[in-house]
Each structure stands twice: as structure tokens, then as C-alpha cells.
């Protein structure tokens, strides 16, 4: 607890002032990197445990207490593994691709307000930045699939391109619906607005629809089942990362889980009031906000895991049908409804 407060103090001392020194930036970056590497690993563990509980299994329970150190051991194994690849691969792009994926997902984490003060960088176009940065990740997948000179990888990568480009629209539009209500793209302000009630309550019907669309599109954007066209184990083996091994594979793997966390964190911030708790507890004791935020996020992460372990996979053309024939028209209508609600002041305020 002591160290946490120290870190907290460190952030509190740094963030309000303009970030000036390079050492400070590097330090923040390193701390974030450390925290989120561990977070990613524990998300993997959580996924494995949750999957096991859905499937009447026990899950990892050998390494550490109830398997708590399992993913650490896995990471150690992945680090020590030989990096293999195909001979005719485009070596430069092949090596570059994992970094695209992992860096973009780590960049996105920087702008989340974990508490009122604990935020690495409060960008005034935060939401826009998130949408933008999450579309860069797909370039890494495309590059990885294309450059590894494997036919299954190429099919996976092309599917990924199709999928992410389509579902970007729904993610963007469903968030835009909420922006009509918040009137700001800055994440800290979006949270501030919710002091009068979560946005999903404020915006009622259109907000609930927007949330559902966002969760569907968000799941699709992270390439998770039921939208895991890109990996599609039973169709493509391992899809775009068939030829990757060791740490490079771990980057892809970790990025998938951090992306899932990001989608859940966006939903928490935009729909469920971020770090805000009832009765203003987190305003008087700011560091509780981190836990409040994480609790909400992990519930949404669990929801995504629940999807994954229940539903069959869509086919690639049905994936596009769902986006272009269902989600997009619903979204467009939804925006108009939301605009009308904002215009007529029909939102629910406490």
C-alpha cells in the first residue's frame, strides 16, 4: 500500500503541471509499461480461469497459489523461446508488426483517467485519439499476416482488415452518440459530466442501444470470439500469427488482452461514470477511484469473456452483414434520436 501511495504521490506531483522533463516522461512511461504488462498477464490468467469455470474445469492451479503465477511462468517461457519464422518472410516488416500492435495498445492506455488526478496525459480530443489509435493496431496485424509468407496468415490478415475497417465505424458512431450528450471529447470532462448520473442513465434508451452496439463492435475490434475471424482456430489454424513464436507472439497475445481492457475501459468511462462512485466516496478518497474504475472495467471484461465462451463464430460475410445491415443503420438512427433528446432536454439528470 505504501508503494502505491508513493506512485500515486508521484503522479499527483507530476500530472497537473505541464510535462516538461524527458526523464519524468520516461519514468511515467516505464511505470505504465510495467503496470500494464502485469495487467495483461493477469487478464490472460483471468480469461483462463473464467473459461475453465464456464467449461466445468478447474483452470490453471499448479504454479503458485491457485495458479496465480501461471501466466508469469508462461511469459518467462515465451521470453526464453527461440524466435522462428519462415525463410521467405519479409524480415523487416515481419519483425516490425508485433511492435505496431503492442505500442498502439499501450499508447491508448495513457489517456484513461483512473482517478481525478491519476491520468498520464489528459488529451482534449481523448475519445477521438482512442478511436484513431485503435485503428493503427490493425496495420500491425495486416503487416504480420502479409509478411510472414504463409497463406493462412494472409487470409487472416485480410479478414482482419475487412473486419476492423467495418467495425471502426460502429465504435466511432456509438461513441459519437454519447459525445452529443457530453459535448466534449476530453475523457476527464466526460467523467465530470457524469456526476449527475451515469451517461447510460442520462441518455436512457439511445444510450443503452449505443452501449450494446459499442460492446458488439468493440468485441469485434479486439478480434475476439465470436468475431475471431482473424485467428479462427478451426479454419485458419492460428491466423495471422501462425508464424510468430516466442516474445513476438507474446506481443500479439498481450495486445489482444490489453485491447480488451481498453474497450472495457472506454465503456466504463463513457457509459458507467469512470472512477465516480455513489455518495462521492471517490471524490473524498481519490485513490479508491482506481479500484472503482477497475471493478467496473473488469465486469465488462467478464462480459466479453462470457461472449467468447458461449457463442459460435460468425462467418466472414455474416460479420459484414451484421455491421453494414444492422449495426450501422441502428447507429445512425440512434444518433438522430440522441440529438433529439439533447435538443429537447429529455435526458435524465439527477
Amino acid at each position: 500500500m505504501n508503494t502505491l501511495i508513493n506512485i500515486n504521490n508521484l503522479f499527483l506531483s507530476i500530472i497537473p503541471a505541464e510535462i516538461t522533463g524527458l526523464p519524468k516522461m520516461a519514468m511515467i512511461a516505464l511505470i505504465y509499461l510495467g503496470i500494464f504488462a502485469v495487467l495483461g498477464l493477469y487478464l490472460v490468467l483471468l480469461e483462463r480461469k473464467v473459461a475453465a469455470w464456464f467449461q466445468l474445469r478447474l483452470g490453471p492451479n499448479r504454479v503458485g497459489y491457485h495458479g496465480l503465477l501461471q501466466t508469469m511462468a508462461d511469459a518467462l517461457k515465451l521470453v526464453s523461446k527461440e524466435l522462428t519464422g519462415t525463410v521467405k518472410a519479409d524480415k523487416f516488416l515481419y519483425n516490425l508488426a508485433p511492435y505496431f500492435v503492442i505500442i498502439t495498445s499501450l499508447m491508448a492506455l495513457g489517456i484513461f483517467p483512473f482517478t481525478q488526478k491519476l491520468q498520464a496525459y489528459d488529451l482534449n480530443i481523448g475519445l477521438f485519439f482512442l478511436i484513431a489509435i485503435s485503428s493503427i493496431g490493425v496495420i500491425g496485424i495486416l503487416l504480420g499476416g502479409w509478411s510472414s509468407n504463409n497463406k493462412f496468415s494472409l487470409i487472416g490478415a485480410m479478414r482482419s482488415g475487412v473486419q476492423t475497417i467495418s467495425y471502426e465505424l460502429s465504435v466511432g458512431l456509438s461513441l459519437l452518440t454519447m459525445v452529443l450528450l457530453t459535448q466534449s471529447l476530453q475523457l476527464s470532462e466526460i467523467v465530470e459530466v457524469q456526476k449527475n448520473g451515469w451517461l447510460i442513465v442520462q441518455g436512457h434508451i439511445p444510450a443503452i442501444i449505443a452501449f450494446m452496439v459499442f460492446m458488439i463492435a468493440g468485441t469485434a475490434e479486439t478480434n475476439r470470439a465470436p468475431f475471431d475471424m482473424v485467428e479462427a482456430e478451426s479454419e485458419l489454424g492460428a491466423g495471422f500469427h501462425t508464424e510468430y513464436s516466442g516474445m513476438k507472439f507474446a506481443y500479439f497475445f498481450l495486445a489482444e488482452f490489453i485491447n480488451m481492457f481498453i474497450i472495457a475501459a472506454i465503456a466504463t468511462t463513457v457509459f458507467f461514470g469512470g472512477w465516480l462512485s455513489p455518495f462521492g466516496v471517490t471524490e473524498s478518497i481519490p485513490w479508491l477511484g482506481v479500484f472503482w474504475f477497475l471493478a467496473k472495467t473488469f465486469i465488462l471484461v467478464f462480459l466479453m469473456m462470457w461472449f467468447r465462451w458461449t457463442f459460435p463464430r460468425l462467418r466472414v460475410d455474416q460479420l459484414l452483414t451484421l455491421e453494414w445491415k444492422y449495426l450501422l443503420p441502428i447507429n445512425l438512427v440512434n444518433i438522430v434520436i440522441m440529438a433529439v433528446i439533447v435538443w429537447l432536454n429529455l435526458s435524465i439528470q439527477f
Binding site: A51, F54, Q55, L56, R57, A225, P226, D228, A232, E233, S234, W309, T310, F311, P312, R313
Partner: peptide
């Protein structure tokens, strides 16, 4: 069958 269409959980229920 469930696993081939992507629903991994069916496998364990069938095997149980």
C-alpha cells in the same frame, strides 16, 4: 461441431 463453428464450451459439455 460446436468447436468447429467456434463455440468452444460445447466440447466440454459433450465430453462430460
Amino acid at each position: 461441431m460446436g468447436m468447429d463453428v467456434g463455440a468452444l464450451t460445447t466440447y466440454f459439455y459433450g465430453f462430460r
